[in-house]
Computed example of a mutant assay.
Amino acid sequence: MAMKFLYKEDLEMAIEKQYLSDVAAILSHRHDNGADLWATPDNKLLKGSPFSTFDSVLYLLELGMSPQEPVLKAAADLIFSAWQEDGRFRIYPTGGIYPCQTAIAANVLCHMGYAEDERLQKTFQHFLDIQYKDGGWRCNKFSFGHGEETEYSNPQPTLNALDAFRFSQYLNNEPALDRAVEFLLEHWVIRKPIGPCHYRIGTLFMQVEYPFRNYNLFQYVYVLSFYGYAKNDRRFLEAFETLKSKTVEGKIVVERVVPKLAKLSFCRKGFPSELATRRYSEILENLNKGH
């Protein structure tokens, strides 16, 4: 596929050659949803999974594309166009604005290097202002009714929020984030479906999924490893040892990947992934750091 918006030589310098075909495959989907940059004509940014705007940006970053490449700078502008003055992101043109949606948008922008942008500083404060009583973040949307389990926060949005916060000045400096970490550590004990959206720690959670898309063991351990509150906690260490037991010669083997990504080389199911192993190496580095 011709990538006229990129200089091929520059792209090859940033991305290892074995991943150029993966990049081309992801870019080939950029108009699938009816508009450019994986969006719909009315700017739905989360539609079209696993090739939504947010998904695709994270894949390209994972593959080594610089946030300064024109396609990613344009995507950042598109995401920021959904930002609201109160710090939230409206990623759908109509309907409610939920914390889970804002967490996704903020997390992607932080991965792109915008954590210090004044708009995201407002978003961080917004999250601190709306933190739920159990320490996590929770959407007032009850797809599964109003059982007692829905009195908890939603684990994945909480994990996404913590992933964004790790790029900020709040990392290991804000007690509210320790409360969020504690909420997620306690879910390791509870295991059962909790939150309005029924996130559980079960068979699927325990399968190593890559790239990071869903609430699963690998992403759980990865994000929490940045937080000093977690690193010496027995619950975190149990989760880490579970992940470690799944490695083969120190490498991460992908156990689950969404079918539409199955042909991409960086995340082949049943095979060691070099890029996933780099994330695992970050976990090891984090555990060896003082806090």
Rank of each mutant, 00 (worst) to 15 (best):
D77G: 14
N173D: 11
A161C: 14
G147C: 04
P193Y: 05
Y98G: 02
E255I: 01
S66A: 12
I26V: 15
T158Y: 04
L63E: 07
Y152C: 01
A103F: 02
F127D: 05
C100Q: 11
Q125I: 08
E118V: 12
V71A: 07
K133F: 12
E116H: 14
S81H: 06
V221I: 10
F167Q: 06
P272C: 03
A106H: 00
G195W: 09
R30S: 11
P67M: 11
I130P: 07
E285N: 09
I104H: 09
F205T: 11
M112E: 09
E186D: 13
I26T: 11
E241D: 13
L185F: 11
R30G: 06
D77Q: 13
M13G: 05
A239T: 03
A176K: 15
N286F: 02
S281Q: 15
N173P: 00
K8T: 10
F80P: 05
I194Q: 08
S265Q: 06
L264K: 02
G250W: 05
V108L: 09
Y98M: 02
P67V: 10
K192T: 13
F183D: 06
V248K: 13
E149N: 11
N43M: 15
W38E: 12
V71N: 01
I97R: 08
D55W: 11
P155D: 01
R279Y: 14
T158V: 06
F144L: 07
T102R: 06
E285A: 14
A39E: 04
D233L: 04
D77E: 15
I91D: 12
S225K: 05
G96W: 04
G290P: 00
N173G: 13
V248R: 13
Y199A: 10
K44Y: 08
V23G: 08
F183G: 08
N216F: 01
V221K: 08
F266A: 08
I97N: 07
A2C: 00
E174Q: 15
L46I: 14
K244F: 07
I252M: 07
Y199S: 12
N43V: 11
A14C: 08
I190C: 05
F271K: 15
P93A: 02
R179F: 02
E241P: 00
Q121P: 02
D129F: 02
P99N: 10
F142Y: 15
H31G: 00
G270F: 04
P157Y: 01
C267P: 03
Y152T: 00
V258L: 13
I283N: 04
D163L: 01
R30I: 05
R268N: 04
P193R: 05
T123Q: 06
D86M: 03
L120N: 10
A230P: 09
E182T: 13
H187S: 05
L37A: 03
W137T: 10
I130V: 15
